[in-house]
Design a binder for these strands. Structure first.
Lengths: 239, 239
DNA sequence: CGCTGGATTGACTCGGATCAAGTCGAGTGG
DNA sequence: CCACTCGACTTGATCCGAGTCAATCCAGCG
């Protein structure tokens, strides 16, 4: 089973054998977690850094009135913030969506790894910058895109992120996200999301069927979304 | 003139005299920048890290159709990402709002500073985590709060952030943000924002007059916003 | 075979956008 | 000192995208 975390870091910069070996050691303590289990809850005191090796998770916040907003999706290879351990308490929760393989890396181990392997540290910092770019793109989507554009944009993003770690087959991607979850991520009601997905389906751009996203017309989907992939930073910086 | 950057970092952890001295050296190369000047534009290759010592700036993205979304406000003491230098190009622009005093810190100097002063590094990492928390709060606001709640929430946030660096006087704060800018930050039209501000004014919770935010009823404003300040992480972690 | 949780569809309502006039206040120049 | 201007703020009237409420529909499964 490929280690998506290492695969992802490699996409952000060349890693030597020794780097990969160190990462393999650091990510050997795998735990299996069931679906819909909170890994950590808002208000909890943060513990070790953790990495999703397989499966999907969501970061979310609950408002005082009970509404939920998903603020990020974690797919295989994604991890929480490197320095969460510095905080007194979490400002959001993280929950698995489907059964997942999770690795936790203690603070000392993480510090040691980053000190001894600057190329790894560099790749992790880039990963963090990409995560921030994604948050900015989400803010932009929520504020200034219509619901159709917003849904199309999210699908473009998820597809490219997944493609980056070899999770796609052709123009298809296994996407275990219910319409309720997607609605909470896109800031709309499930009913309206359902109609939006129908419109996108009828337009011929994409379909979601049985937890599979199929992009039938990438150009059109990107056009609908007004998608510019620059924020995913797949182009490496050249010296 | 107080150095808001040092002041802010101090709020995230105790700094020794030597730390402060090093920070003072690092932030001595001040440039004066006029209002509405882009410090860096989307697509540009990032240069040194920069810090806003005085004045306000905004991070923003422009959509293909020309719409603008402000994704963050930078107030005195705020800085851009520590590791921007790793990216090939910016995924958003940063522009001053009013005349500002800006400091730039080269990558090598920054690395040296953080290596030699772990307490400074720690405070900067916390600052970055707070910035991320703010982005998550914005996503949540845009997705699940009504326009009135959203506006109230932003005002609570700006007030607390400003109070943290001694920028407030009583329940008042100098807020040089036009309604157009606020509308682009809150994802609504200027016309609608105007009505929202009127409602908040009539409710007795807050008023904006001549670039000054006056919170007339903090409890009510927080209640309207559904505000929980946990994401600003003003409580320090105790060992 | 019925139960259950997601997906789908319809009818109606409402928040916020759009379009279109104003109004106010700080300069600026005669 | 007052008229002119320009940008930002206000207000009204109307429209439309998305929410709400309420039924189904459907597939997987005990």
């Amino acid at each position: 089973m490929p280690n998506r975390f290492i695969q992802k870091l490699k996409s952000y910069g060349v890693l030597e054998k020794s780097d990969v070996a160190a990462l393999e050691v650091a990510t050997s303590d795998v735990r299996l977690i069931g679906p819909k289990s909170d890994l950590i809850r808002e208000g909890d005191r943060p513990g070790p850094v953790f990495v999703v090796l397989e499966g999907w998770a969501s970061r979310y916040k609950i408002l005082p009135n009970g509404l939920r907003q998903v603020v990020a999706f974690l797919m295989p290879g994604d991890c929480c913030d490197l320095h969460v351990g510095l905080l007194a308490e979490m400002d959001h929760s993280i929950q698995t969506i489907v059964p997942a393989r999770i690795v936790t890396i203690g603070r000392d181990q993480m510090d040691g790894l980053m000190d001894a392997h600057p190329r790894v540290a560099r790749a992790m910092y880039i990963a963090q910058l990409v995560d921030e770019g994604i948050m900015r793109a989400w803010i932009t989507s929520m504020g200034r895109r219509t619901s159709i554009e917003r849904a199309a944009h999210l699908m473009c993003e998820l597809y490219l992120r997944a493609a980056n770690i070899g999770l796609t087959t052709g123009s298809e991607l296994v996407l275990p996200l219910s319409q309720l979850l997607l609605a909470d991520a896109l800031g709309m009601t499930p009913v309206h999301l359902n109609r939006v997905l129908k419109t996108l389906r009828l337009s011929g751009a994409m379909t979601i069927k049985r937890e599979k996203l199929l992009i039938t017309d990438p150009t059109q989907l990107a056009r609908i979304a007004g998608f510019d992939e620059n924020y995913l930073h797949r182009r490496l910086r050249v010296a």
